[in-house]
Amino acid sequence: MIPKELAKKIRYIQIYTSKAVNDSLAGEYESMFKGRGMEFDEVREYQVGDDVRSIDWNVTARMGEPYVKRYVEERELTVMFMVDLSASGAFGSSGQTKNEVAAELCALLAFSAIKNNDKVGLIVFTDQVEMFIPPAKGTTHVLRLIRELLSFSPGQKDTDISAAIEYLGRITTQKSVVFLVSDFLGENFENQMRVLGKRHDLIAISITDPREICLPDVGLIELEDAESGERILIDTGSAAVRNRYNTFGTDKQKQLKALFRSMAVDHLSILTGQNYLRKIVGFFRTRERRLRR
């Protein structure tokens, strides 16, 4: 049995994301992600303007007049969600933790995928892969993914993005759309991400809490690293301390953005507490315009 609170949350996400997909996202998703290629559809009579290279000479000889082969885009895709649910994702200062926002984002994108008849799968990782759900279609499957994300209790605290990427490389050879969702506080994942970006259509989604960038003036506070357990006492009453912290947080975001740009990996930056639907739609439109050039 699913706990009542969890069932209520799953239902809320289903209703919200389904409405968002129908109202805003379905068309953007379909136009952004192209199929794996072209598949044969039919043979029809030649019409003025048709490419002569598409003429089916066997049918033409048999019928005594020109016929052409018609192809349509093969739309079905495999979409993989690689979601970092390590201990640092349990932090949240805006009513939701980073992990909860990650679950909602994946739900939104997964419902967009199945509306276009694509398959979706899930890899949940910390410093090791802790869960793998093979790609499949359908609303029931997506609801299972959401339930697993919301109820997941990590066995480890640390983060190893490289291990998750290597795992994906072992389980799939087919080119997929890969959403890598993390706060990217791990290290030494750059080389593996470059390789992943060459093999798959990779989109990095970074999730950050506002308090990881900017601290308010609330006096003495103790901060704890969720993964290492290290603690530090900070005097937020000091303007100099706040400025150094804010500069550090802002620089880290800039470095992450520059890193993905250097890898030629598409990057969507999400701040907890903000309207992420608008950010996703804007990201899809920008990417589509770029791919058309």
Rank of each mutant, 00 (worst) to 15 (best):
Asp51Phe: 01
Gln156Asn: 14
Ala204His: 06
Leu6Ala: 09
Pro154Gly: 07
Cys214Glu: 15
Gly121Glu: 11
Glu222Gln: 14
Ile15Lys: 11
Lys198Trp: 02
Thr272Ala: 06
Gly35Ala: 06
Arg244Tyr: 05
Ala107Pro: 00
Val218Gln: 10
Lys34His: 13
Arg144Trp: 03
Ser93Asp: 03
Ala102Phe: 04
Leu25Lys: 07
Asp50Ile: 03
Gln255Trp: 05
Lys157Asn: 13
Asp209Phe: 03
Lys137Ile: 02
Val72Thr: 14
Ile203His: 07
Leu85Asp: 00
Lys69Ile: 00
Asp266Arg: 15
Leu277Lys: 10
Ile207Phe: 06
Leu271Lys: 13
Gln174Cys: 08
Met38Glu: 11
Asn99Phe: 05
Gln128Trp: 04
Gln255Cys: 03
Gly138Cys: 05
Ile13Leu: 09
Glu230Pro: 00
Phe33Asn: 12
Glu166Ala: 11
Gln128Pro: 00
Ala87Pro: 09
Met82Asn: 04
Gly95Tyr: 02
Asp251Met: 14
Asp183Ser: 10
Ile205Val: 14
Leu145Asp: 03
His200Asn: 15
Thr60Tyr: 02
Ile280Ala: 11
Ala102Ile: 02
Val177Ile: 14
Ala20Met: 11
Ala7Lys: 01
Gly64Arg: 06
Val178His: 06
His200Leu: 09
Phe40Arg: 11
Arg244Asn: 14
Asp209Val: 02
Gly89Ala: 06
Ile55Asn: 07
Arg11Gly: 02
Arg11Ala: 13
Asn243Val: 05
Ser86Asp: 09
Tyr276Pro: 03
Gly95Asn: 06
Glu187Trp: 02
Glu5Thr: 14
Val101His: 09
Val195Ile: 15
His267Leu: 10
Arg36Ile: 04
Phe33Ala: 12
Met38Lys: 13
Arg285Asp: 08
Gly219Lys: 06
Asn116Pro: 08
Ser24Asn: 12
Gly229Trp: 04
Trp57Met: 06
Asp51Ile: 01
Glu224Tyr: 01
Val181Gly: 09
Gly92Gln: 07
Lys9Tyr: 01
Lys98Gly: 06
Leu145Arg: 07
Lys115Tyr: 07
Glu187Val: 02
Ser54Tyr: 10
Leu202Thr: 14
Ser153His: 10
Leu108Trp: 09
Ser112Trp: 02
Thr272Pro: 07
Asp127Trp: 02
Leu196Met: 15
Ala163Met: 08
Met80Lys: 08
Leu291Trp: 12
Thr173Asp: 14
Thr236Ser: 12
Leu220Pro: 00
Arg290Met: 08
Ile146Cys: 04
Leu122Trp: 04
Gly169Asn: 15
Glu187His: 15
Ala61Cys: 06
Ile213Leu: 14
Arg287Glu: 10
Leu149Glu: 00
Lys4Pro: 00
Ala90Ile: 00
Ala164Asn: 11
Lys34Tyr: 01
Leu180Tyr: 10
Glu45Lys: 11
Met193His: 07
Lys8Glu: 15
Thr250Val: 01
